[in-house]
Design a protein around this nucleic acid. Structure first.
Lengths: 341, 341
DNA sequence: TTGTATGCGTTATCAC
DNA sequence: GTGATAACGCATACAA
């Protein structure tokens, strides 16, 4: 019932607690005989060391704290999958918190992680986050921090992101080379860094190929109901320009793109003959809509793995008192060309 | 840099550690004046209590451990969302582990959670799990345990599931009342309890409406590549029976259903006129495929909330030494009727 | 090779 | 209203 402790084992074997401890940790300076004795009894009694006590003593927890805006999100759930697998592979476990895109919650949760004495933190910012004092505090405490996906220039730490700008550049370049000139951009809230970057990539591709930029081809879709917004923005697009006034749409997320597809299908606008559509994310749905969506593949699982790897090296460097060099990883993306372009 | 401790505060204020501790916890037997003094200094120095030490002392961690087969799954990610939100609302945090459908990992992870001294465990079984000694061990340790979604009769604990059987019964009944007689069942691996239940619901609906059961209308789709399997099973279905030999398909998951839709669309089989399709899950994609999929709405977020609530009451009952009464919650589902039926 | 003693930072009991 | 002191279970420097 009650947990077995080192003390219990020691008493039963008539040896000292420290010998038991050492035997269990396979220290060289304890005889094979006692080692066997201890191991056997521990096994028999189903002994589980109390990690909390160990943590207090050793001053590290082998826990990494992760804060993300939202778990119910194709991309983020992949990232989390990568994080958890990679952490476990290296003997770490993960405390997962979701900020629900709420700045105050993010702040509170960061404090929580400090209190929990996590060995390191993986953070993806809220859209709302504009102040960074709470994050600087993490760094003042000397807790290794790696930001991923939703990052900011205001904080000096390792970061892992996907190449939003280059990906968008590649996608729009592809559209242009296919002969499209009037290419609309459907973005989400401009606050989020990702969308800014994707928009910049769009602009740069236009510039590269000397396609004039027309700001009336830029449409905004609110986050959190991107699908419906994609749909209604597509409606506005056609109202504003007519089917002939647009060649293609580059959407900043797959969900927006799927909303557009839905509107076009409903209104007998042929994809890609009348208007081509390019998405972003390569989420599962992009392969099953019809026509199947050309999109940017965003390797979430790999992002998770990379973030953990960087964090773990920073943690070990900190433990060795070596100084750490910040890293800025850009996970390469690729274009998945399907039938919508 | 180094963490501030109670000791530090006490020294700076020239009072004892215990008074500081009490002041911080707003004990009644400490004067307002010292309380204020302590709080002010704690605030100024950004004091964060070391929860690990507190945990060791109080013998509880306010952590709940969660093991699921796979996070990258529409339904599970919703459940996790509910779990994390509800846990946090009650002052608990969540350690999340994924077993990747691997029995050995599940075993290892359960032990890990014991060592971490979690206050309670939420578990959803691997498909592989056929032995339950590792789970019984949790109970012997007196750790409250609630199973969700993938549960087993072999363990006596609280459970929260959705009504797989009744949902399937309702869906198939709906199809029959619409005039369909030749209704195929597309299931996943029969090992998983869910599919068994869904198949039973299918059978029972047939019986209820005196529709003869034809085992040649039952097709199996392997898990993990349900989409492709749905597609190829649909192909076999048509080969075996022709379009006229089938009225409708009830698929055990949305992904399978979407695979079927894809095959039918590719082969100009009209949905629902030629063959109707009913899915299971109400995942996001079910609303965006075309035709939009009729499906069973499976409230994952609510399942997460319920599981946490039950677990927390068991934890508090355990702490109060009251005896706990096991609960068996069946989260009600509802039919989402769209255009595929 | 084994044992003794001490401390990690907090909480809680019991004096004062 | 305040403080000294002893745990919680483990790890480790040092002594034996």
């Amino acid at each position: 019932m009650a947990q077995i402790t080192l003390h219990d084992l020691a008493k039963k074997l008539n040896i000292s607690v420290s010998t038991v401890s050492k035997a269990l940790k396979d220290y060289p300076d304890v005889s094979e005989k006692t080692k066997k004795k201890v191991l056997a009894l521990a096994d028999k009694l189903n002994f589980s060391p109390n990690i909390v006590a160990s943590n207090l003593r050793t001053q590290h927890t082998k826990i990494i704290g992760v804060i993300i805006p939202n778990i119910v999100h194709d991309f983020f759930s992949k990232v989390i999958g990568g994080i958890i697998d990679e952490a476990e592979k290296n003997g770490y476990i993960v405390i997962l918190l979701q900020s629900n895109e709420n700045y105050e919650l993010e702040k509170k949760q960061l404090n929580l992680l400090i209190q929990q004495q996590v060995d390191g933190i993986l953070l993806s910012l809220t859209v709302e986050t504009k102040k960074f004092k709470h994050i600087k505090r993490i760094q003042q405490q000397g807790i290794p921090l790696v930001m991923f996906d939703k990052v900011t220039d205001s904080i000096d730490c390792s970061k892992v992101v996907i190449g939003d700008k280059k990906s968008a550049f590649d996608a729009v370049s592809f559209l242009i080379r296919k002969g499209n000139k009037r290419i609309a951009f459907f973005g989400g809230s401009m606050v989020a860094l990702n969308f800014n970057q994707r928009f910049n990539g769009y602009l740069e591709a236009l510039k590269e190929y000397r396609v004039p930029f027309d700001d009336r081809l830029v449409y905004m879709c609110n986050k959190n109901k991107e699908y419906a917004d994609g749909y209604s923005a597509a409606e506005r697009l056609i109202e504003d320009h007519g089917v002939n006034g647009v060649d293609a749409v580059f959407a900043a997320t797959d969900v927006i793109a799927v909303g557009i597809i839905k509107y076009f299908n409903d209104n007998k606008i042929n994809i890609p003959k009348d208007i081509a559509i390019f998405g972003f994310g390569n989420s599962f749905m992009s392969s099953i809509v019809s026509p199947a969506l050309s999109t940017v593949d965003q390797p979430g699982y790999e992002m998770g793995i990379n973030a953990v790897d960087i964090l773990l090296t920073e943690i070990s460097h900190k433990n060795e008192n070596e100084n750490i060099s910040l890293r800025n990883i850009i996970i390469p993306t690729s274009l998945k060309i399907r039938h919508s372009t």
